[in-house]
Amino acid sequence: MTDLRIHQYLIDRPGSRGELNTPVLIVDRDALDRNIALMADFAKDKGLGLRPHAKTHKSLDIARRQIAAGASGVCCAKLGEAEALTESGEIQDVLITSPVVSAPAIARLAALHARIGGLMVVVDHPDNVRALAASVSADHPLGVLIDVDPGIHRTGVASLEAALSLARDIAAQPSLSFRGLQYYCGVQQHIESYADRRTAITERTAYLSGIIAALEAAGMPAAIVSGGGTGTHRIDAELGVFTELQVGSYVFMDRQYAECDLAGDGGQPFETSLLVDARIVSANTPGLITIDAGYKAFATDGGVPVVKSGAPEGATYLFMGDEHGAIFPSGEGRTLAEVISLQVPHCDPTVNLYDAYHIVRGDMLVDIWPVTARGRSR
């Protein structure tokens, strides 16, 4: 039975959050909207484009809210995400941030390009340039950005010379349009100290600036320089190299980002809007309770969830298997089925575990939004 069928009768009923079957993915709608507005206002104030990364939320409903607040479009990590989020026809401006290289995937990309008005994709290899060029018409060129490796050797061209060579390859293809560069410093996003993060990003941005200058000198200017993230958005704006920000996790604020000094003042400009609600299922051991949320309820690469409510201040979570977690200290007089709310460790892969968001205002369920692109990893 789907989440909608299970819980639809609870929508707009006072106290209905407490009646949800658990574990359940919760979004605080007001906190979400404040986060979206804050980042949109920041980008506008700094004269930057905003292209939020939909790999974080995989949701058409959230993408709609971001675009309504001023975003130009969205990023998608994979072709499948882009297909899912554009199916309704509402979203027309998409950048796919991972190379699309296989023949079947390129055929799907060409079909998507024919269907929406503003598709772009990244490339980092001349063979991919040739394959993409052969799949689309010169009457409707496909926009491409050169992905630049920031030093983690995941994807991207590995040198200034390689970037120049690839730009020339793109320019030689009438069916492709060179639009600029992508540069995402993922490792640096989670450096907890603002000063240390700024030092690291400043050094990496200097390398990017050299590539931009070389392309300009070669007569191939990068109109778009897309990148950055939630952890570095203020630093990126200050350094003035990017034309648009690919921020993603700011909408939710998971544990990894909440532990970072994002603003340089020790404060946290964004709110936790994404939670998992769970219930006590066993309370037989003094000082410890067991809840119904384990490895299947949270991505585990970002540490453990943070207890936000329903347990004593300072209570700690411990994974206890696929279906269960422990909370200790438990507090006195705990009873079965009490609700514990937890901040997720890493939002992107946690979201991918669920079919739907349960949207709340206070203690009331107000809507249910599907995780539109759940599982669309190819």
Rank of each mutant, 00 (worst) to 15 (best):
D3H: 08
I11Q: 13
P14K: 11
G18W: 12
L20V: 14
D28W: 08
A40S: 10
A43L: 09
K44Y: 10
R51G: 00
K55H: 04
H57M: 06
K58M: 07
I62R: 07
G70Y: 02
V74A: 02
C75D: 01
A77Q: 04
A77V: 00
K78H: 10
I91V: 11
P104I: 05
P104R: 04
A107M: 07
A107Y: 01
R108F: 00
A111M: 08
H113C: 06
I116E: 09
M120D: 04
H125K: 04
N128K: 01
D139K: 11
G143R: 01
L145D: 03
G156C: 03
A158L: 13
E161R: 13
A171L: 06
Q173W: 05
Q173N: 01
L176D: 01
G186M: 05
Q188V: 05
E192W: 13
R204N: 03
T205K: 03
A213T: 15
L215G: 13
A222E: 10
I224N: 12
G228P: 01
G229Q: 00
V241T: 12
E244T: 04
S249I: 02
E259N: 12
D261Y: 11
Q268W: 06
F270L: 05
E271V: 06
S273F: 11
D277S: 08
A278T: 09
A278Q: 13
A283E: 07
T285A: 09
D292V: 10
A297C: 12
P312W: 14
G314V: 15
L318F: 14
H324T: 08
G333K: 15
G333R: 10
T335K: 09
L336C: 07
I340V: 15
D348E: 15
Y354A: 11
D355S: 13
R361A: 14
V371Y: 04
